[in-house]
Amino acid sequence: MRLGFIFGEIAQGLKRNVSMVISVILVTFVSLTFVGTAGLLQLQIGQMKGYWYDRAQIAVYLCTAIDPASSCPQGAAGNDIKKAVKEKLDSATIKTYVASFEFEDHKQAYKHFQEQFKGNAVAKYVTPEQLPETFWVKLKNPNDSQIILESLGGQAGVFEVRDQRSYLDQIFSILNAASLAAVGIAALMLFSATLLISTTIRLSAFSRRRELGIMRLVGASNFYIQLPFILEGIVAATIGSLLAAGAVVAVVQFFVQGYLAQQVSYMSFIGLGDAFLIAPALVLVGILLAAVASSSAINRYLKI
């Protein structure tokens, strides 16, 4: 095996189809960046789930004077109702699941509301009586929320029992949809990358048809004939995937850590460690893709 000869052939092939090679590099770069972004988004979702699910509580909202009679026939919840709910939470059957709970009255709710909606017009119009009194329940295992939902849901004077995770789930499903969209775009781009690689190989084989004809005549082995083409595709795709890997790392370093994490300080974000998890996978995908695309192209366009 003459390595120098093979590398010479690859260099020549790359030089001859510069514009095609550049387009292969760019398409693999963009498509793999999408794949990487989808991966990052999934990791971020995972991280947020872990973070927020730990903090999510169950809110037992008690009836207020303004709640409709259909759910609160007896009007605003009185002390007897608060006592009944508290007793239930303290009862032996439920207590085993509950880590802790606290009561928030109108005044505290109003204070939290004013903090949360500071500057918002709605803060001016709301009165303490309109905000429900609430038992905030923290569970030992957040997955047991159904028990609380069932046992307190039908309680007289309770307006609604709500697992905060249901709000989070909506956010996560939006993020999931976004990452699915990224995967979809990535799949399309990867498909066009495959086609582009095979067209490039075909062009390259065409421009080298004299050499190939002679190689076949003098009995160069199939491997020897095909290897430069396959490597040519792999070199181009590797450059593209390295760029994509770099882009993923850069996005995490400069956008997520450098911007988002500074702006949104209460949330935890993925770090460089996660990016370095995804980057090598991208390079691997790029190389595999090129190997498969170019060897199938060669089998189609190079008759031995």
Binding site: R210, E211, V218, G219, A220, N222, I304
Partner: peptide
């Protein structure tokens, strides 16, 4: 088998009307 064809062709020499030089 087609993978043996190249090794077979090494035992042959061929020339054509159009020379086929690079």
């Amino acid at each position: 088998p087609s993978r043996r064809v190249p090794y077979f062709r090494r035992k042959l020499g061929v020339v054509f009307q159009d020379f086929r030089l690079l």
